[in-house]
Design a binder for these strands. Structure first.
Lengths: 241, 241
DNA sequence: TTCCGAATTTGCGTAAGAGCAAAGTGCCGC
DNA sequence: GCGGCACTTTGCTCTTACGCAAATTCGGAA
C-alpha cells in the first residue's frame, strides 16, 4: 500500500510517474505534471475521516491516490445512502466542474486513504492550460452519470436479491483484489453499508450473504467479503445483468 | 404554444430574443446568438416521436424550445423507466459534453415539441468561443446530477406513496401551468408513466390517485393531472421532503 | 353519432421484505 | 488474556405493494 511506502508529506519522483498513468493527466508531459503537483496539497485520511461534508463551501477539488472514498448523502430522517465509491486515480469533489459552490454530498474515507487536492480557483486554469484534462474529467463525470442512471433503473425494477448481487459485482469490478479463494473487495464493507447502497435493510443483506455463503458463492468475515464464484453472482444479478 | 405561432421552419427575430433568455446563451450578445442560430437545425416532433435512441451514435446535441422531452431507458426485460423530463430552454442529448460518442438513453417527445440541434463537432467550438456557454451547460448538468441523486435516495428510502407524491410535485414544479382548479402538469401523463418514474406499478399509482382525488388533493382526467392542493402533497412526500 | 381501443379503476390473494427482538461472535484495545 | 463493543445472525410477525383478473370509462376517429 502506498501509504506505508511514502508516508504522507512529500511528493516524490514516483508520484510523478504514478500521476502520468491517471486519466485526468494521461495526456500531459513531465513539466506539466510537475507544475500541477507543485500546487497540490497531499493529505492522509484515517478510515472514517471526513474529507468534506454536504453543503460545505466547495473550496478544493481532490484526486484520490490510494484507498477508497465513500460518497454519501443523509436523508432528513437521518438514514444514510451511499451514492458511489471513489477508487485510486479518480477525481472527486469536483464541484467546480459543475459550477457549484458547495459540495452536494459528504465524502468519507472507507479505508485509510491518500489524496491530493487543489483550490477550486485552479480548475479553470487546469481546464484551459492542460489539453485533455477537461475531456478526461468530463468523461469520468459521464461514466458516473451513467452509473447513477443504472442504479436508478436497478432500484426501480429489480428486486433486492438482484440489487445486492449487482452491488457486490460493482465493488468487485471497481476494487477487487485477487486472493486465494477468489476476489476480495479491497475496502471494509459492513452489511449495513451494503444495505445503504442497495436500498434495503442490513437484516435482509445479512440473510442473503448467509445464504450465498452456504451455497459457496461468497466467503466473508467481519467487514471483509471475498467473492468465490462471481459468475454465479452475475446470474443472480438478473436477466442479462 | 410556440408551435402554433411560428410553425417549424424559419427562425425569426422573436426566436432570437427568446434564446437570449435561455441559460446556455444568457451571456452572449446579439451577433453571437445570430451566429449560433445560423448553424442550427430546427425540427418539430409529434407526441411520441423519437428524437434519438439509446446506443445510437451521438451526432447532434439539442435544445428544446417548446414542449416536453422524456428521457427513457429500457431494461433487458423490456420495462421502461423514465430518467427525467426536459423542459423548454434546456439542452439535451449533450453526449459531447461528457466525451461520449453514443447516446446513453432514448429521448421521446412527451408532447408535441420543437427543438433546435447542432452537429456535435460544434460543441467544442461553442465552448471555446462563447463565454459562459460551458459554465451554464455544466451547471445544468450538475443540477441534473443532483436530481438523479435525489431520485436514488428517494427510491432507496421512501415508500411508494411518498415517491409518487414527490414525483407529481417535481412535474408540477418543472412544468406546471396555472389553471382554475389548481396547477396542471403541462404534458400528458399516464398512470403507467408515473409508475415508470417512481419504480412501482400502474395499479398502485391508480389506487393512490383515486384516493387523492377522493380527498380533494388532485383532479385528473385521462392523461391530464391537476394538483389542487400542492401543500398536502408536500406533506405526503415525506418528512421535510 | 357510434364505435373502438387505450387508459383507468377496483377487488382479491399473495409474496417479498421490513420491522422488531434477541442471541451470538469476532476483533480491537487495554 | 480479557472485556466490551461493533457487527452479524436468525426467528417471527406484519405490512406493503405486487400480480392477476375483470369491469368500466373516456376520448378520439370514422
Amino acid at each position: 500500500m502506498l501509504l506505508r511506502k511514502f508516508g504522507n508529506r512529500v511528493l516524490n519522483k514516483l508520484d510523478e510517474s504514478l500521476l502520468t498513468r491517471l486519466p485526468p493527466f494521461s495526456m500531459l508531459d513531465r513539466a506539466q505534471i510537475r507544475a500541477i503537483l507543485d500546487q497540490a496539497a497531499s493529505r492522509r485520511y484515517d478510515e472514517g475521516a471526513t474529507v468534506f461534508g454536504e453543503g460545505m463551501p466547495a473550496e478544493r477539488f481532490h484526486l484520490l491516490l490510494d484507498g477508497t472514498i465513500r460518497v454519501i448523502r443523509t436523508t432528513p430522517t437521518g438514514e444514510q445512502i451511499i451514492a458511489l465509491h471513489i477508487g485510486p486515480g479518480q477525481l472527486f469533489g469536483i464541484a467546480p466542474a459543475l459550477a457549484r459552490d458547495t459540495y452536494p454530498a459528504t465524502a468519507v474515507a472507507a479505508a485509510e486513504s491518500l489524496a491530493l487536492s487543489w483550490p477550486v480557483r485552479l480548475w479553470p486554469e487546469f481546464v484551459q492550460r492542460y489539453d485533455g484534462f477537461a475531456t478526461e474529467s468530463y468523461r469520468t463525470l459521464g461514466a458516473r452519470l451513467g452509473e447513477m442512471q443504472s442504479r436508478i433503473t436497478e432500484l426501480a425494477t429489480q428486486q433486492v436479491e438482484q440489487r445486492v448481487a449487482a452491488c457486490l459485482l460493482r465493488m468487485v469490478n471497481q476494487s477487487g483484489r485477487k486472493v486465494d479463494q477468489g476476489i476480495e473487495i479491497a475496502f471494509p464493507v459492513t452489511r449495513q453499508n451494503i444495505s445503504e447502497m442497495t436500498g434495503t435493510t442490513l437484516h435482509t443483506v445479512s440473510r442473503l450473504l448467509s445464504a450465498w455463503e452456504r451455497e459457496g458463492i461468497v466467503e466473508s468475515t467481519r467487514r471483509r467479503i471475498v467473492v468465490t464464484a462471481p459468475h454465479r453472482l452475475v446470474l443472480l444479478s438478473g436477466p442479462a445483468g
